[in-house]
Computed example of a mutant assay.
Amino acid sequence: MQECPLKYGCNPNQNPARLDRADGGELPFTVVNGNPGYINFLDALNSWQLVRELDEATGMPAAASFKHVSPTSAALGLPLPDTLKRACFVEDVDGLDDSPLASAYARARGTDRLSSFGDWAALSRPVDAATARLLRREVSDGVIAPDYSEEALAILCEKKNGKYNVVSIDASYVPNPLESKEVFGIRFTQKRNDCRFSPETLGDIVTQEKDLPSTAKRDLLVALLTLKYTQSNSVCFAVDGQAIGVGAGQQSRIHCTRLAGDKADTWRLRQSERVLSLPFRSDLTRAARDNVIDQYLHDYEEDVTAEGRWQLYFTSRPLPFTKEERAAYLRQEARLSLASDAFFPFADNILRAAQSGVRYIAQPGGSTRDDAVREQADACGMTMVFTHQRLFHH
């Protein structure tokens, strides 16, 4: 296939729309089911690169959940603790414990469930039935993977009344080293960002604290590779083999850090017993529960626990989760990792990271204020690595 017609462009009025290779060669993917659009394929091709590189860097199955050309999360196929299963609403998924790939997607999808609603999924290895069953139950636009088992494909092709987008990609495909795009009739050409990360690239520790365990290196790799395919500016928090807070597309880096930190805080709070024990009504969908949890964890003029409202969501009136209680929960040791796609220009980013339990940092370095940033990291007892590799993505 040398040309792939698309449902439409960024918006329904932008027709015609199609994909083809700049060098005129065969496209490296097959649309197995559905009719993906322009944004679907932007998500698919970016997310595929992310999970492939995560798999290569760690040797573990990887998954990503993408929305509007940025990952909501990316994760490795590590087993899920029971509390995380409950927080991700996957404790009842058949075969989850036996499928590292399904575990990876459960983590990626479950990190920021509000943002992942209607996502595009990417999987680094052939999709099995357990992963397909997990995808089938979520609101999702499509999936890209190198292959699908016969049972998995049958499950996915039933989704959305047979219209779910399923794309198979050639895992051996290597693109041209030069890439280009057009804006307003002007063509931009550049060398592809083919930088690679491994544990060995995390050797330039610039802080007084030098402790960088293998688990922290793994989490920093997850964060760095997530940022490589996130719209800049961007900052990513990670722990336990998954990105737990992505701050994307902000003009100010401190706003990236605050956004990512707030998401990481929410991910942690979702695993608190206060949230896990919320008495939801049985007819409330998972998506509706996500919205209610978000309101429960943030300040609104009229909280979901207020008199006259709680009956809409709960079988009994839950206790409020006060600011003080949430702050106390978040003060528990977390040992999170954080990466930034460009240098931190001010130490305020380090202070905000510390508030969310960050212990390990990777950033390019190169700011005129590197010394001030390093001093703040030292004051917070953090280990900070300079990668000397900027990761802007547009």
Rank of each mutant, 00 (worst) to 15 (best):
L123D: 06
P36M: 11
A362F: 13
Y173V: 03
S198W: 11
D341P: 02
G110A: 04
E375P: 01
A106E: 00
A57H: 05
G95M: 10
M382F: 06
E150Y: 08
C157Y: 02
D262K: 09
S252M: 15
E324S: 09
T207P: 11
A64T: 10
P28Y: 15
C10F: 15
E91L: 12
A102R: 03
S47W: 01
L312K: 05
R281D: 04
A22G: 10
A121V: 14
Q2M: 10
E209L: 01
E53M: 05
V31M: 06
R253V: 15
W120Y: 13
R109K: 06
L156T: 11
G247K: 08
R369A: 14
K263V: 10
R136P: 00
R258N: 14
A354K: 07
M384Y: 07
D43E: 12
C157T: 14
G365E: 09
R196A: 15
H393Q: 10
C256E: 08
L276V: 02
L312A: 02
G24Q: 14
Y38V: 00
H298E: 05
A104Y: 01
F314Q: 01
P79R: 03
D240T: 05
Y38Q: 01
A106Y: 00
L351H: 11
T215D: 11
I361D: 10
K160A: 13
I144W: 11
A379S: 11
A377M: 10
A17Y: 00
A132Q: 11
D299P: 00
E182R: 15
R268V: 08
L269R: 00
R326G: 06
Q389N: 13
F280Y: 09
R274C: 04
D240G: 13
W120I: 12
F66H: 13
H388D: 14
K210E: 11
Q2D: 07
G241S: 07
T111D: 02
E150S: 14
V292Y: 00
L391F: 10
N40T: 07
S124T: 08
Y360N: 10
L227Q: 09
G162C: 11
D290K: 00
R359V: 09
L114R: 00
A63N: 05
D204N: 15
C195I: 14
P5I: 02
I205R: 10
S234R: 09
N291P: 00
F197M: 08
R352Y: 06
R136T: 03
Q311N: 11
L330F: 04
G77Q: 03
T257S: 12
P16G: 06
L101K: 00
S103G: 05
S140T: 10
G162Q: 08
G110Y: 02
R109W: 02
P199Q: 14
G241M: 01
R196H: 14
V31E: 03
R192A: 15
R192F: 12
T226N: 04
A379W: 03
S124D: 06
D283N: 12
I186H: 13
E307N: 15
S340F: 12
D141H: 14
N193W: 04
E138G: 13
A62F: 03
D82F: 08
A87S: 14
A104E: 01
T383F: 04
D94V: 15
V304M: 03
E273M: 07
A122D: 01
E375F: 07
T30L: 13
E301C: 07
S70K: 06
T83Q: 06
T201N: 08
S124A: 12
Y38P: 00
T266L: 14
L156I: 12
S168L: 09
P177A: 13
L54E: 07
